[in-house]
Amino acid sequence: MPASEYVRNLRARVGQEMIMFPTVSAIVLNDRGEVLLHQRSDNGHWTLIAGLMDPGEQPADALVREVEEETAVQVKIERLAGVVSHDVTYLNGDQCQMVNIFFRCRAVGGEARVNDTESLAVAWFPLTALPDLNPFTHRMLALALDDNAPPYFAAPGEGGF
C-alpha cells in the first residue's frame, strides 16, 4: 500500500530524515497452532503482519484493521506481548524509528489470502516449520507465545532486543 497522506505530508517536510512512527504487529494463531505470516512485496521477506497507526487511532483498532487489510483474516486480541522500538531504513532511503506494540491474537474469521499490494504471499506456518525470519521477528514470536511472560519492554537504560 502506498504511503498515507499523513506520511507523504511529513516526508515532504523532512525528506528522508528520521521520523518516529507508532506501529503495531500481530502474532496471529489459528486453531491448529499455526502462525500467520506474509511475504512483503517491498523486500520479499517473510514477517509478521504489521503496519503504521493512523493519527487518532487506538493500537488495538490499528492491529485489527492491518490484519484484515493485508490478509482478509479477522482477529481477536488475546494479550499485549510487548512494546519495543527499532530503526528501519527503507529501500528508497527513508529512515524511521518504529515504536512497535505487538499483540498475540487468535484468528476468528476470514480466509488467509493476499488482500492488498503489501504482500506477495500470505500463509499459515506450523511453529516447527517457519520460513526464514529475522532475529527481531523470532524474538517477538517467542515473547508472544510464552503464556508466562509479562509484556516485554526494555528497562530504562537497555537497548531492547
Results as ranks from 00 to 15, higher is better:
Val7Thr: 11
Arg13Cys: 05
Asp31Ala: 15
Leu120Trp: 05
Ala155Ile: 00
Arg40Asp: 14
Glu34His: 14
Ala3Met: 12
Phe136Asp: 00
Glu68Asp: 07
Ile27Trp: 02
Leu52Asn: 15
Ile27Gln: 09
Ala72Ile: 00
Thr117Met: 04
Glu68Thr: 03
Leu37His: 04
Asp42Lys: 11
Gly33Asn: 14
Gln39Leu: 04
Ala62Arg: 06
Gln58Arg: 11
Thr71Arg: 10
Asn43Glu: 11
Gly56His: 08
Val35Leu: 06
Ala149Leu: 05
Glu57Asn: 02
Met98Asp: 09
Gly56Ile: 01
Gln39His: 04
Pro131Gly: 01
Lys76Pro: 00
Arg65Val: 04
Thr137Arg: 02
Val64Ala: 06
Gly93Tyr: 07
Glu57Trp: 01
Ala112Phe: 01
Phe125Ser: 03
Met18Gln: 14
Ser25Tyr: 03
Thr47Ala: 11
Asp116Pro: 02
Gln95Lys: 15
Ala123Tyr: 01
Val67Ala: 04
Val83Asp: 11
Ile77Ser: 01
Ile19Ala: 14
Ala142His: 05
Ala142Thr: 04
Arg11Gln: 08
Ala142Leu: 06
Val122Glu: 11
Asp42Trp: 05
Gly110Ser: 07
Val75Ala: 12
Gly109Leu: 09
Val108Trp: 13
Pro22Thr: 10
Arg65Asp: 04
Ser119Met: 10
Leu130Ser: 07
Met1Lys: 06
Asp31Thr: 12
Leu120Arg: 15
Phe102Gln: 10
Val84Gln: 10
Ser25Thr: 03
Gln74Lys: 15
Val84Phe: 10
Gly110Asp: 04
Glu78Trp: 10
Leu133Met: 02
Pro156Leu: 00
Pro59Gly: 07
Ser25Phe: 00
His138Asp: 08
Ile77Glu: 06
Arg40Phe: 01
Leu141Cys: 00
Leu10Met: 12
Asn134Arg: 13
Asp147Asn: 09
Asn30Ser: 10
Ala62Pro: 08
Val7Glu: 14
Arg79Asp: 02
Leu29Arg: 15
Ile19Gln: 15
Asn100Glu: 13
Cys105Leu: 01
Val114Lys: 06
Ala81Val: 00
Ser41Trp: 01
Ser4Trp: 06
Met53Asp: 07
Ile77Lys: 03
Arg113Pro: 01
Pro22Met: 05
Pro2Glu: 14
Asp42Thr: 07
Asn9Ala: 14
Asp147Arg: 14
Asn134His: 06
Leu91Gly: 13
Val88Leu: 10
Cys105Tyr: 04
